[in-house]
Computed example of a mutant assay.
Amino acid sequence: MKSYALTVFDKSGEKLLDESFTAVSDQEAKEIGKAQLLEKGFAEHTHRCVNPQAKLILFHR
Rank of each mutant, 00 (worst) to 15 (best):
Met1Cys: 06
Lys2Val: 05
Lys2Thr: 08
Lys2Gln: 15
Lys2Pro: 06
Ser3Thr: 10
Tyr4Arg: 01
Leu6Pro: 03
Leu6Ala: 04
Thr7Ile: 12
Thr7Ala: 06
Thr7Ser: 13
Val8Asp: 01
Phe9Asp: 09
Asp10Leu: 09
Lys11Leu: 15
Lys11His: 15
Ser12Gly: 09
Ser12Ile: 07
Ser12Arg: 11
Ser12Ala: 15
Gly13Lys: 12
Gly13Leu: 14
Glu14Cys: 10
Glu14Leu: 13
Lys15Asp: 10
Lys15Phe: 07
Leu16Glu: 12
Leu16Lys: 07
Leu16Val: 03
Leu17Ala: 09
Leu17Asp: 07
Asp18Ile: 00
Glu19Trp: 04
Glu19Asn: 07
Thr22Ala: 09
Ala23Asp: 05
Ala23Gly: 02
Ala23Leu: 03
Ala23Thr: 02
Val24Phe: 09
Val24Ile: 10
Asp26Phe: 01
Asp26Met: 03
Asp26Trp: 01
Gln27Asn: 13
Glu28Arg: 08
Ala29Ser: 09
Lys30Cys: 11
Glu31Val: 07
Glu31Cys: 07
Gly33Cys: 12
Lys34Ser: 15
Ala35Glu: 14
Ala35Thr: 13
Gln36Lys: 15
Gln36Leu: 15
Leu37Asp: 07
Leu38Val: 14
Glu39Gly: 04
Glu39His: 08
Lys40Ile: 10
Gly41Glu: 07
Gly41Tyr: 09
Gly41Trp: 09
Phe42Asp: 06
Ala43Met: 14
Glu44Trp: 11
Glu44Leu: 15
Glu44Pro: 01
His45Leu: 10
His45Ser: 14
His47Asp: 06
His47Glu: 04
His47Phe: 08
Arg48Tyr: 04
Cys49Gly: 00
Cys49Leu: 06
Cys49Ser: 02
Val50Tyr: 02
Val50Asp: 01
Val50His: 02
Asn51Asp: 11
Pro52Thr: 01
Pro52Tyr: 00
Pro52Ile: 02
Gln53Arg: 06
Ala54Thr: 01
Lys55Ile: 04
Leu56Gln: 07
Leu56Cys: 05
Leu58Ala: 10
Leu58Ser: 03
Phe59Lys: 04
Phe59Asp: 10
His60Arg: 11
His60Cys: 11
Arg61Cys: 12
